[in-house]
Simulated scan of single mutants.
Amino acid sequence: MIVGSVLLAGGLSALAVGQGLFGGDLAASPLLGDQVNELLAQRWVPYAAVAVAFVAGFLALRWLMVQGMNDTVGRLFLERDDAGNVEMTESVARGALEQEVADYPGVRRARARLTESSDRPHLRLALTLEDDADVASVWQRVRSEAIANLRGALELDQVPTVIRMSMTAPAKNPRRSLA
């Protein structure tokens, strides 16, 4: 928004100078000096401008693609040694955790994501609570039961966790009428 405002102000001021709103002498003078005009007349300048535009376009496209990437791990490694690996898909651990938390009183919906690394995952848990839920009780149960169960299943001492809780709007009473 700031860049757009600056560009708009610059364009409007250039239009005003060109129309002679700031005096005829300023409108009649060349915009660029003779040295800049000589430089722009070189044969390599258009090619350099195209190359810079391609690089800028590539970097912008890469930035857009990175925005859509997901940081969720695919598999969780429970054990690694020379004989083989014991691993579990992230969806199994996530699904069990979501089901356990969704069964707590006052929880309408639970969504979990295991991120960061396959060896030391981090948990992001988003809970939607009923409007009359006991938030402290839900938080305490999630902390003492659900996360403890996840740590035990993954055989980890700790799982760094971010819990986001939101409340639902109260249900509308269909019997209520305007009298």
Rank of each mutant, 00 (worst) to 15 (best):
E38N: 03
Y47E: 06
L178Y: 09
V86T: 14
G24P: 09
G95V: 06
G20T: 04
A51M: 11
E145S: 14
V45Y: 01
T115R: 15
A112P: 03
A110I: 04
R175Q: 10
S166K: 01
F22M: 08
V159D: 00
S144D: 15
V73Q: 08
R175Y: 09
V3F: 04
E100R: 06
L26Q: 04
A169D: 15
L76C: 02
M65H: 07
P170H: 08
V36P: 05
N37A: 12
P105L: 07
S177E: 15
G10E: 08
F58H: 01
R141W: 08
A28R: 15
L127W: 04
A16I: 02
D131E: 13
L39K: 13
R108H: 11
E87M: 08
A14N: 05
E155Y: 01
L64Y: 10
R111P: 02
R111H: 07
Q19L: 13
I163K: 00
Y47W: 10
T72V: 11
G11F: 12
A28P: 02
S117A: 09
A16Q: 06
F77V: 14
A16G: 03
D81Y: 09
T115E: 14
A179P: 15
A56P: 00
V50I: 11
L32A: 09
D131R: 08
E145I: 14
V92W: 00
A126N: 07
Y47M: 03
